[in-house]
Design a binder for these strands. Structure first.
Length: 738
DNA sequence: GGGCCCGCAGGG
DNA sequence: CCCTGCGGGCCC
C-alpha cells in the first residue's frame, strides 16, 4: 500500500508534495489533521464513517464506533456514485465528496444540528487525544496545533519520540522536556462538557436558528415531530431558490433539485410539503403577501364558506374577521368585518398592479369540483381583476377578490393542450351590493403577449425584498434547549487573546502554552525578518545567528514556532461553537456590541500606532530596525510608550556594526499575516511584501527620517508598523429569543 | 367529523 | 415581540 502521510504545516501534501485546494482536503475527525484526498483514495472505503472521516493514524480498529455498517456502505456507495457521475466536473466531485464526508448531506437529517450540537459533535469526535481516545486530560498543545493528554504526551516522549503523533511535525525539545498545559483548552473542554450537560437537561424553549440545508427533507422526521404531530414539526427544507416574496411561476432555474420548476398540476401531500416547493409558503394562512408589496400566492382550502370556485376563475374571501382567542388557529365563525389591511391589502396591491398570483387548491375544499381528491395541488397563475367588500354569508363584511386564470399551461382539470387565453370577465352578481370596489388602472404587470401567444411580465417584476433560500442561507428560528447566559462572559474571560483582549479568532497555542489570535500574533511580529547569517570578519566566519522573537506573554523564544504557526483547530472549533451558541442565545445586541468593540479596538490600534509615530518626534518608518528584537509585552502592543519603543539607540548601535555582504545572509523569513487564512476579525493586514533586508530600502512608502536604510545591518529585525486594514464582521441575522 | 391543542412561520 | 393564521394529529 502506498505511503500514508498527511499535509504538512504549510498545507502541502507530504505524499505528492503539491498543495491541495480546500475541496481536495479532508480533515481527520479525531486529530483534525488535513489529508490530501487524492493521495488517500485507497483508505477511504475502509475508514469512512458518516460521523466524519478518521485518518490512518487515528483509525483504531479497537476504538469504538457508533456507525452502523449499513450507513457506512451507504457512504461508500455515495462516494462511488459521485465518482461515476460523468455530469460532474472534478471540482464538483471534490465538493460533493467533501460535503458527504463532512456529514453535510443525507446522513445527518437532524434539523436541530446547530449551536450546542456542534460542541457535542466536537466532544464526540475531533477533540479526543489520539493516544487514549478520550477528551484530553490536562491537555497540551503541540506547535503544530494538536492536543494530547499530558500523560499520553509524556509517555510518547518517554518512548523517545520527537514528532507529533498526528502530523509528524517535530516537537521542540523545550516542549518535549517541559510540556505546558493549555489552560484555555481545559476551559474549552469544561465549557463544552457543561454545554452538553445543560443541553440534555433543560426543556426546549429558546429559539435558535437552523440553516435551510440542515432542515429535514420531509417535515415529519424529527423525534419531536413524531411525538407532537407534523403540524407541530419545524417545516422541511425549501427546495427552490426563489426568495419568499417571489411572484409568478417557479422556473426550472430555481429548481436545482429537479431542474424543472414547479409544474401546474403538481400535488403534495399537505401544506407543509407544498411549502417546501415554494408554491405557497405559509403553512396555515391562506394568503402569502405583504401589505405594502403585494401577494404572491393563495390557497383554496375551504376555510371560508364565501369562496366560490369556477376553475378558471373564482371568488376568494380575505382573511380575518374571526375570533381566534383561546389558542385557536382557525375559526369558522365570523365575528367582525374584514378590512383591506395586512394580507387582504396585499391582495389588493396585487390586483392594482396586475401581479401574477400562484394558486394552490387543497383537498380540504369540499365544495369545489376543482379541488384535488387528495393533498394540495398547484393550479398555476391567476390574476386578481377586481376586489371589493360585501356582507358575507354570516352577515359580517368580507373582502372579495375575483381571480382569473392566466397561465401558459393548461389547468389540471382540462384536456386542453394549451394554457389560458385572455377571457372576458365573468358577470359577478354580488358586485351590485359591493362597496370599496377596486379595479386595476393601467396595464397589468403580468399580461398576455398576443404576438408570442404567452403570458409574461409586461413590466419588470417587483424587486425582491428578501433573500433567496439557498444553501447556507435562509435561516429560520427553531426551538432549542435553553442554555445559561454566561457563555459569552466566560468566553471573554477564558478565551481572550493576550494581545487584542478579544475572544480569540484562529487561536495559536505557543510552545509555552499561551494563546493568541493568529492575526494578532503575526501582526505583532509583522514585517520582522528572520535572518540567519554568518558574519565574515576577515577570514573568520562567525557562527550562524538568528533573531529571537519572544512570546508576548512570557518572553519565551517562539521564533521557531512563528515560522510555522499552526492554528489550534480544536480550540478554535469550540470557541466558534460557543460563540455561535452565545450569540444565538443572547441575541443580536451582543453581536452589535462585539462588532462595535472590534471596530473600536481596531480604531484604537490605528490611532495608537499613529500616536506612536507622532510622540517619537520623528516620523518613524513603517519598520524600525532593532537587532535585539525586543518584542513588546502583550499589553504594550499597540500602545507602546516612546520609552519602550524599540528604536533609535539600538538603531544607532546597529549602524555602528560592520555592514556584511549580501551573500552572508543564508536564510530569512518575513512574518506576515496571511490574508487568505486570516480570521474574520482581520485586525491587522500586512502587505506580503514587507521584507526588509540590509540592502533594501524601506518597504513601505514613508521614508525613515534621519536614517539611511542603506546603513542598516543585515541581522536587524525590521519591526513593521504595518499598514492597517480594518475589516468588520458582517452583521449577523437578528436572533429572537422565544 | 367535530373539537381541541399547539408548533411554526411570517407580518407588522 | 406580539399577533395572526384556509394545519394536522389526536381524542371522543
Amino acid at each position: 500500500m502506498a505511503q500514508q502521510l498527511p499535509c504538512d504545516g504549510d498545507g502541502n501534501c507530504m505524499v505528492c508534495k503539491s498543495k491541495p485546494t480546500t475541496e481536495e482536503i479532508i480533515n481527520c475527525k479525531t486529530c483534525i489533521t488535513p489529508w490530501h484526498l487524492t493521495c488517500l483514495s485507497g483508505t477511504l472505503d475502509a475508514s469512512s464513517s458518516p460521523d466524519g472521516w478518521e485518518c490512518p493514524d487515528c483509525d483504531n480498529p479497537i476504538a469504538p464506533t457508533n456507525s452502523s455498517s449499513n450507513v457506512r456502505s451507504d457512504l461508500i456507495a455515495s462516494i462511488r456514485a459521485i465518482e461515476n457521475d460523468s455530469s460532474l466536473t472534478d471540482h464538483d466531485k471534490a465538493i460533493k465528496r467533501q460535503h458527504l464526508l463532512s456529514g453535510q448531506v443525507a446522513h445527518d437529517s437532524n434539523p436541530q444540528s446547530s449551536g450546542h450540537n456542534h460542541i457535542l459533535e466536537l466532544l464526540d469526535q475531533g477533540f479526543n487525544c489520539s493516544f487514549c481516545m478520550q477528551l484530553p486530560e490536562r491537555p497540551v498543545t503541540t506547535p503544530c496545533g494538536h492536543n494530547f493528554c499530558l500523560k499520553c504526551f509524556q509517555k510518547w516522549i518517554g518512548q523517545g519520540k520527537r514528532t507529533c503523533a498526528n502530523c509528524r511535525h517535530p516537537i521542540p525539545s523545550k516542549m518535549a522536556s517541559n510540556p505546558r498545559i493549555n489552560s484555555s483548552l481545559v476551559v474549552a473542554i469544561r465549557m463544552a462538557k457543561m454545554s452538553k450537560d445543560v443541553g440534555s437537561k433543560v426543556q426546549p424553549k429558546v429559539c435558535q436558528f437552523i440553516h435551510n440545508q440542515d432542515r429535514p427533507n420531509q417535515a415529519y422526521t424529527t423525534e419531536r415531530a413524531i411525538k407532537s404531530g407534523k403540524a407541530n414539526a419545524c417545516s422541511g427544507k425549501i427546495f427552490v431558490t426563489v426568495p419568499p416574496d417571489h411572484f409568478g411561476p417557479i422556473l426550472a432555474e430555481n429548481d436545482p433539485e429537479r431542474k424543472q420548476g414547479v409544474l401546474v398540476g403538481e400535488t403534495w401531500v399537505d401544506r407543509l410539503e407544498c411549502r417546501q416547493w415554494g408554491a405557497h409558503l405559509p403553512h396555515v394562512a391562506g394568503i402569502s403577501g405583504q401589505s405594502e408589496y403585494g401577494a404572491q400566492s393563495v390557497a383554496l382550502s375551504g376555510g371560508y364558506e364565501d369562496d366560490e370556485d369556477h376553475g378558471e376563475w373564482f371568488l376568494y374571501t380575505g382573511s380575518g374577521g374571526r375570533d381566534l382567542s383561546g389558542n385557536k388557529r382557525t375559526n369558522k365563525t365570523q365575528s367582525f368585518d374584514q378590512k383591506f389591511e395586512k394580507q387582504n391589502e396585499s391582495l389588493r396591491v396585487s390586483c392594482r398592479k396586475g401581479y401574477p398570483v400562484r394558486v394552490v387548491r387543497s383537498h380540504k375544499e369540499k365544495r369545489s369540483s376543482y379541488a384535488p381528491e387528495k393533498g394540495v395541488r398547484y393550479d398555476g397563475i391567476y390574476r386578481i381583476e377586481k376586489c371589493w367588500r360585501k356582507p358575507g354569508i354570516q352577515g359580517f363584511k368580507v373582502c372579495r377578490y375575483l381571480f382569473v386564470r392566466c397561465d401558459n399551461d393548461p389547468a389540471p382539470w382540462t384536456s386542453d393542450d394549451h394554457g389560458d387565453h385572455p377571457r372576458p370577465l365573468p358577470d359577478i352578481e354580488e358586485l351590485k351590493i359591493a362597496t370599496d370596489i377596486t379595479e386595476r388602472k393601467g396595464t397589468p404587470c403580468w399580461d398576455y403577449d398576443s404576438q408570442g401567444g404567452i403570458w409574461k411580465w409586461s413590466k419588470p417584476p417587483p424587486e425582491s425584498r428578501k433573500q433567496a433560500v439557498v444553501d447556507g442561507k435562509g435561516t429560520k428560528k427553531v426551538r432549542h434547549p435553553k442554555q445559561t447566559k454566561t457563555i459569552r462572559e466566560r468566553l471573554l474571560k477564558e478565551f481572550s487573546c493576550l494581545i487584542c483582549r478579544k475572544i480569540m479568532v484562529m487561536p495559536l497555542t505557543t510552545p509555552c502554552a499561551h494563546n493568541f489570535c493568529k492575526s494578532c500574533l503575526e501582526g505583532a511580529f509583522a514585517g520582522q525578518t528572520f535572518v540567519r547569517q554568518r558574519i565574515c570578519e576577515g577570514r573568520r566566519t562567525l557562527r550562524a545567528q538568528k533573531n529571537i522573537m519572544k512570546c508576548p506573554s512570557c518572553s519565551a523564544d517562539i521564533s521557531d514556532f512563528l515560522q510555522y504557526p499552526q492554528v489550534n483547530r480544536e480550540l478554535m472549533h469550540v470557541i466558534d461553537s460557543l460563540q455561535r451558541q452565545s450569540k444565538e442565545i443572547d441575541g443580536d445586541e451582543e453581536n452589535v456590541d462585539l462588532d462595535e468593540e472590534t471596530v473600536d479596538a481596531e480604531e484604537k490600534t490605528i490611532l495608537s500606532a499613529e500616536k506612536n509615530d507622532a510622540t517619537d518626534g520623528v516620523i518613524k518608518d513603517k519598520e524600525v530596525c532593532n537587532t535585539d528584537a525586543e518584542i513588546p509585552k502583550c499589553d504594550e502592543i499597540g500602545k507602546q510608550s516612546p520609552t519602550n519603543t524599540p528604536s533609535k539607540p539600538q538603531t544607532q548601535k546597529n549602524n555602528k556594526r560592520k555592514k556584511p555582504d549580501n551573500d552572508d545572509i543564508i536564510s530569512e523569513v518575513t512574518i506576515h499575516t496571511d490574508n487568505t487564512q486570516n480570521c474574520k476579525r482581520g485586525a491587522i493586514d500586512v502587505p506580503e511584501a514587507t521584507v526588509c533586508t540590509n540592502l533594501q530600502a524601506s518597504p513601505v512608502g514613508r521614508k525613515l527620517k534621519g536614517s539611511d536604510p542603506q546603513k542598516n545591518d543585515a541581522d536587524k529585525i525590521c519591526l513593521s508598523n504595518p499598514a492597517v486594514g480594518v475589516q468588520t464582521r458582517g452583521k449577523k441575522k437578528k436572533l429572537v429569543e422565544g
